[in-house]
Design a protein around this nucleic acid. Structure first.
Lengths: 221, 221
DNA sequence: CCAATAGTGTCTATGAGACACTATCAA
DNA sequence: TTGATAGTGTCTCATAGACACTATTGG
């Protein structure tokens, strides 16, 4: 018998920096420490439903705004010695665009977006640093062979914005010319809307996410 | 509060056919139905430890013989209506070579290897058909970009044997010449032992698994 | 005009796949 | 010798990446 929690690695880009939602805990266990948002499953609720519920409570996000994917389950009996009962955590990866500042719900004294480089350096509660690292690595590798990158963007976006997702998550520079050709020539990755966006320089065509979910060939890191 | 089980999709090649270990259940819930091997976590035991314990009990396998990888956690509240309490399952994928016939342990009236095509057609207990399908798909896709295929083979093997793993798991024919070149020219995938194996035809050089775990570029399906 | 950003052309090197060919054994 | 299996050579086509170039805007 164990308590089952759903915890969430919620990633977004803030000013071009990959950031994760963290909350300052209010419950007795690990009170006052920074942790991933999450909470226990309610009776009759699946872990995925619990994750969506937590996202709605702490971030005001509906199912349409966010892509959720199961990351893994953490069940080491020593992972959470501060609870009286055994706790296992089903971790989810959530990606979304322009997430609002998270709100401190009933279980949190504070909540905010933290650049991932800083977040992995913080001493997070329980084994959340490990979960966070696994989530970042999952996001990095899924960019290669899936269309996940578009989840970080609004419904319409330019190719430059899509490229900057890759550059922010991977921490590399990509050749703009080759990236443009590759993305637009991959069937189902993006589709043109016919609109344009003006700024400094030549106006950029706008695209929306296509129907494909996996990329073949992949975008190489 | 929930009961937590570890269930295992244990795959091996039997006469060139991808097969999965199934047990006929003896416990009250779903008694007499075919299911994946598995069982509840003991106090103080992680899910991974529980999975290894079940493999040892039902297959006589040590940690060295098998590669274990977490597949996912299944937590739908209706996934297991036959139990009185809620049960969630942490599923593992296990790959091994030449597995012995599984033995019926305390929780099983019978146990055997079943070709995966037959197994997905059986009405397995709970949501085990879904878990099995996820496990097969995971194995198929991991062959592409990891060195997982060598887990299906003995410590030393020929390139033809390695190729037949891909052919059995993917259900395709691969060009022997190109496969040989690709595998031997990928750093760290296989390393020659200097030995040979004789049979009909030209003797085949023997190899063992190299130190690499990920394949770049991948083997394409 | 210039700076900035978007997007195209083009060359090269690499690698996948087709398939002809050579090598080495058992029977 | 023949048939079977292992392994190499070689050609073609596709594509990734480098980078020069053109296109279109704001200031």
């Amino acid at each position: 018998m164990a308590w089952v929690a759903a915890d969430i690695v919620a990633l977004t880009l803030r000013d071009g920096v990959l950031s994760v939602a963290l909350v300052k805990r209010k419950p007795r266990a690990a009170r006052g420490r920074w942790a991933l948002p999450g909470g226990f499953l309610l009776p009759g609720e699946s872990a995925e439903q619990a994750a969506y519920r937590e996202l709605a409570e702490e971030g005001g996000l509906g199912e349409r705004d966010v892509r959720l994917e199961q990351l893994g389950t953490y069940s080491d009996p020593r992972r959470d010695v501060e609870h009286e009962k055994r706790v296992i955590s089903i971790a989810y990866l959530a990606l979304a665009a322009n997430l609002p500042e998270p709100v401190a719900g009933t279980d949190a004294a504070d909540a905010s977006w933290v650049p991932v480089d800083q977040a992995v350096g913080k001493a997070l509660a329980f084994d959340h640093t490990r979960i966070l690292e696994d989530g970042i690595e999952r996001a990095r590798s899924k960019l290669e062979y899936s269309t996940l990158a578009t989840s970080f963007l609004d419904e319409t976006f330019t190719i430059s914005e899509l490229r900057s997702v890759y550059e922010a998550v991977w921490g590399v520079r990509l050749d703009a010319a080759n990236f443009h050709r590759k993305v637009t020539s991959t069937d189902g990755f993006v589709e043109a809307t016919g609109e344009e966006r003006r700024g400094r320089g030549r106006p950029a065509k706008l695209f929306r996410a296509g129907s494909a979910t996996s990329l073949n060939p992949p975008i190489t890191r």
